[in-house]
Computed example of a mutant assay.
Amino acid sequence: MFWMILMGPALIDLPAGIAAAAAGTWASTLLWPADSKISVPGLARFLIRFLPQSVVAGVDIARRVFTPRPTLHPGFVVYHSSLPAGMARDAACAVMSLQPGKLPIATEADGTLHFHCLDLREPVEEQIAADEAAFCEALYSVRRHG
């Protein structure tokens, strides 16, 4: 649907789009852990948090970029994740990478995550912890350890 909104409806492309969507769905079901269940209310709360936060952060980044003297204090933050190693932690990092202003750049086996941040004056660790908690709430099977 998103592709059709961007490119417009073209019936000639519909079979390829359906095949790509079916292949993506099939691949994701093979990769998804068998004991996982998605919490629909948790997913809704996650999206309600994630989407506006992404827009606000994007506007903030644009504002900083277009000011004559950007007020950035970049640096690195180390965060200790409570997610188990593997797909859950990797997926959470992928989602967090979509938020402007902080980017996961490395993970370690013990749960240590390294983030590059545009402004260290902001409560980055608290934001990451809140993002991780919202992500965990969306998935029933993700059990935080630690």
Rank of each mutant, 00 (worst) to 15 (best):
Y79R: 02
T67P: 03
R49D: 14
L31R: 10
L43W: 02
I61Q: 05
R64F: 06
V40F: 07
A34T: 15
P41L: 10
Y79T: 00
V59N: 14
A34H: 12
A57Q: 00
R45C: 06
A23C: 02
A88S: 06
R64E: 07
Q53M: 02
A62Y: 06
F76W: 04
K37C: 11
Q53I: 03
F50E: 00
S82R: 10
G86H: 00
I38Q: 01
F76H: 11
R63L: 10
T71R: 15
W26R: 14
Q53V: 01
L30Q: 12
P52S: 00
T71W: 10
A22F: 08
S39K: 15
T67C: 09
V56Q: 11
L31G: 07
P70C: 12
L43P: 01
P41K: 02
H73T: 11
G42A: 14
L83Y: 01
T71Y: 11
L47M: 09
F46S: 14
V55I: 05
I18C: 11
T71M: 08
A85R: 09
A27Q: 12
S82P: 04
A27E: 11
L47T: 07
L30V: 12
V78C: 05
F50N: 07
R89P: 05
T25M: 11
F46L: 15
P68H: 12
A34K: 09
